[in-house]
Amino acid sequence: MIDYQRLFHTGIRVPDLDAAMAEMGETLGVSWASVQHNAAQQVWTPQQGLQSVELTFTYSREGPQHLELLQGQSGTIWDGSDDPGVHHVGVWVDDVAAETERCLHAGWKVAAAAAPPDDGYGVFAYVVPPSGPIVELVWSAIEQRFESWWSGGRLGSERD
């Protein structure tokens, strides 16, 4: 079962990451981890299958509840040009595949994931209940990478 007490971020789609960092940082009293730019972020969606898309993002360094700002390629799940604002909440889970499948059996849908279902959805999956709010299930094994990044280190990858 998903432990909602392991909620750790709110994902916000923005059309201009630098502007959003400036607008929100000072007003909300947060500083930002180093900006991550992935020219070929892998994402799977039920509609388009596996694809590589451009994604730029950062997180607030302060927690335990972090803000995630996402500037995504036009037409992707992370595109904030037409509908910016809160997009999802993220929660650590120990088994992305098992929790995603459990959500599907409860009537939820998958909006996107790091990998196709046959590959266990990868390190994250966006799941959506019939009521609509997106929940991002994030593999807890990568939590230490994020903690390091929020402390001023680099994010790295699961291969590091």
Rank of each mutant, 00 (worst) to 15 (best):
G90D: 14
E62H: 07
R61W: 03
V89G: 11
W44P: 00
G153W: 02
T56L: 11
P129I: 02
Y126H: 14
W92V: 08
A112V: 01
L69K: 05
P15C: 01
A115E: 13
G85P: 06
H87Y: 12
V30T: 00
I2E: 03
H105R: 09
G122K: 12
W78I: 15
A113T: 00
D95K: 10
H37D: 04
E62N: 04
G29K: 03
V96D: 09
Y121H: 13
E101K: 08
L69W: 08
T27K: 12
R6D: 14
M1V: 12
D18C: 04
H87G: 15
E23T: 11
W78T: 08
D79E: 03
R6L: 05
M24E: 02
G90P: 07
A112W: 00
D79Y: 06
S140Y: 06
I134W: 13
F57M: 08
G80V: 09
L55Q: 13
R159T: 05
V53I: 06
W32I: 01
L155G: 00
G153Q: 04
L70R: 09
G85K: 12
R159I: 07
S81T: 07
L69G: 08
L28T: 00
Q51W: 04
R145N: 14
L55D: 07
V30G: 00
E23C: 07
R13C: 00
G25W: 01
P64L: 15
A106D: 12
V128M: 02
A39K: 07
P117G: 05
N38Q: 10
K109N: 12
V135A: 07
P64E: 15
P15G: 00
H37I: 06
D83V: 07
W44C: 03
V14A: 02
A40D: 10
V93A: 15
Q5K: 15
P116E: 08
W139K: 13
D95F: 05
D160L: 14
W92Q: 08
D83L: 12
S34I: 04
P46H: 02
